[in-house]
Design a protein around this nucleic acid. Sequence first.
DNA 1: CGCATATTGTTTGATGTTGAACTATTTAGG
DNA 2: CCTAAATAGTTCAACATCAAACAATATGCG
Lengths: 151, 151
Amino acid sequence: MPTHYQGAPEEVRAFDALVKLTRAANAVNSRLDALFAEAKLSTSQFGVLEALLHLGPLCQKDLAAKLLKSDGNLTMVVGNLEKRGLVTRTRDPQDKRLLNVQLTVAGRRLIRSLFPRHAANVAAAFAALTPAEQETLGKLCKKLGLAQADA
Amino acid sequence: MPTHYQGAPEEVRAFDALVKLTRAANAVNSRLDALFAEAKLSTSQFGVLEALLHLGPLCQKDLAAKLLKSDGNLTMVVGNLEKRGLVTRTRDPQDKRLLNVQLTVAGRRLIRSLFPRHAANVAAAFAALTPAEQETLGKLCKKLGLAQADA
DNA sequence: CGCATATTGTTTGATGTTGAACTATTTAGG
DNA sequence: CCTAAATAGTTCAACATCAAACAATATGCG
């Protein structure tokens, strides 16, 4: 049902793995998004709040690196969070190029209330696999992911 | 390097698998995007052209289902392809609600020239894993993906 | 010191993305 | 038949996303 591609065996095999990998990632992440939507947060917004909760205040450059998003994008995502009073941006006195982003009281309260449910969702999503299967999946994905760097 | 989350063991294990799964999917798909960018095609646009090549003319509803995108979205993606003369939209005479999307000569030529290189890219991306590993990865992803349906 | 270069963030323009409201058409039940 | 419900697309608002051009600041080298 993916693309019935008639090609070399290694291509057919790789296509099959690609389709399943992509669908699994989408399915799991879509499931997790339901919780974010409850709090009217986008995936990226949740990611920013989570990073700030667990790593403390960060500048936008670091946030972008953490979330694997472009810097131009972070301006908007953080901007929308700031509008809602969930984070503040303060110019770094040492290096005035930097904007330190940190949680407000409301932001901290929100992410702290959401995170335990998020963690439970992640565990529930992966409960379809045994612990050994999860570790195998993790190993294979890591190997696959790292190999793309030098492509 | 993911989130150093201190939680129940099954949550930590699931988080680890989630991060690696998501990163692998992103890394592979980013790598594949490079070819699409060469032809100034977005991932979705390439997906539409590929589906039309291998499955023949389709209405937008079917395309949306194939690509796992919203119907509203397909209006734009197909519209942009139509602007470039790569596809045409024709109203179905039997059921006037349907718009049949099909490749133009230029569209067919483009996707046929791109696809072999795409297939080679997919195979190269997965060459980091042995055939057996690719099948294991596929099986685990399928199991994981299907389990999210009833969440 | 003083300028060339690098770094951080913003802006802009194009595309993608969704969900909801809306139109047109078809289908089904009474 | 004829109207109610379902279906296919479009449009819209909001947000995401990137790349590229840009401004402001910092750093380093002569």
